[in-house]
Design a protein around this nucleic acid. Sequence first.
DNA 1: AAATAAAATTAGATGAATCTAAAAATTTTA
DNA 2: TAAAATTTTTAGATTCATCTAATTTTATTT
Lengths: 220, 220
Amino acid sequence: MIKLSFAEENYLKAVYHLSDAGEHDVSTNAIAEEMSTKAASVSDMLRRLSSKELVIYKKYQGVKISESGKKSALQVIRKHRLWEVFLVEKLKFNWDQVHEIAEQLEHIKSPLLIQRLDEFLGHPKFDPHGDPIPDENGLFKEKPQTPLSEVDINETGIVVAVKDANPLFLQHLDKIGIYLGAKTKIIDKVQFDGSMEILVDSKNKLFISKEIAQNVLVTN
Amino acid sequence: MIKLSFAEENYLKAVYHLSDAGEHDVSTNAIAEEMSTKAASVSDMLRRLSSKELVIYKKYQGVKISESGKKSALQVIRKHRLWEVFLVEKLKFNWDQVHEIAEQLEHIKSPLLIQRLDEFLGHPKFDPHGDPIPDENGLFKEKPQTPLSEVDINETGIVVAVKDANPLFLQHLDKIGIYLGAKTKIIDKVQFDGSMEILVDSKNKLFISKEIAQNVLVTN
DNA sequence: AAATAAAATTAGATGAATCTAAAAATTTTA
DNA sequence: TAAAATTTTTAGATTCATCTAATTTTATTT
């Protein structure tokens, strides 16, 4: 594995995520948006990542992540998610507090550290937001998951992940009592605004907006 | 607390250590040596640290660390040592493996993280090399300590720290059976080369060189 | 105290990583 | 399909942290 700078790792991660794990190409502007930077900076960085063969880049045509780029990105993602588990399981952070800190910890370079951390945590397969943790080879299993917004009336499901780790969103879920592992049943859906009424753990009736419903993922 | 770059934190730490916790002034060359860099780079950085009032710097006269510089340095040192405890106590690293990794971890910025880590570790007072861990205010208690080389014949002591965290040195201590907490008794001292014969834990007789004796610290 | 040696600083470059403003390529639309 | 709008890239600066080479200051020696 080549040694990358923090910035390079962050760009790679962005390309990986925006391309849906390398499925499609990503535009310069999309990367700039994701990283809160300017398109000019992105162009510069893409040229550099391309020279290291981490992405496949043709001017004006967007980028695709390369196989070795994917490998690097997945190792950074692995570290990020393991540290998130550590922060929640061991240091008692709430799931809305861990993303920022993990953004720093993910850049620590020590394969042995990550191996030991993984052991210490009991080889977790998912992070506190339900996202899968790649193994040393970058392999992981995604749980089958559907946004609540697409579940039919009367269908039940178990909350397995959230689409977004935005602290305000997660805090709201805490407040209304939605958490990973919660049992849900759709009671009613409002066509007009996409909001819905659901039953959580067979006892708490909730009204949730379309935005919430789209970002809570369940499995049956 | 002002937000510092990794480089600034590392220079501050070097000044702090080389000055014996701010006791005396430190020369440009000494800092360059400690940081494996060039005197020119040190001059540049000292000008910057001085403009932030973290050191008191007069050209050609060496530097002294300021009160706020000392505070910052102690927080970095606190983080370094807490992470070392974590690595040894929780992740089962050996004491010779933790310095390098802690050099990276010490730069993670999150006061809450350090507070939680400290709690998780049970508020340790010393790191795996016997060095004291400053509290949130930078306060710490040093154990009274004497190099083995200065202990008289027939005197006993408990190993409380090592002067240096060099992996080769620590591995050697492992090999000959010297560890923090070991009971020592000086059997004989060789004037010629400063080497000595000692008894460890009342059962293991050892010959150690002057270099070893100077770097193992005991208390009575 | 003048000459020499050593230490420290400045001058000028370099490489990341970023920015703004201008230019070029591509896409959309009329 | 030509004009307009959008996207992307380049050109040129800037800041940080570093370097080498040259200069200046301080310390040491004869």
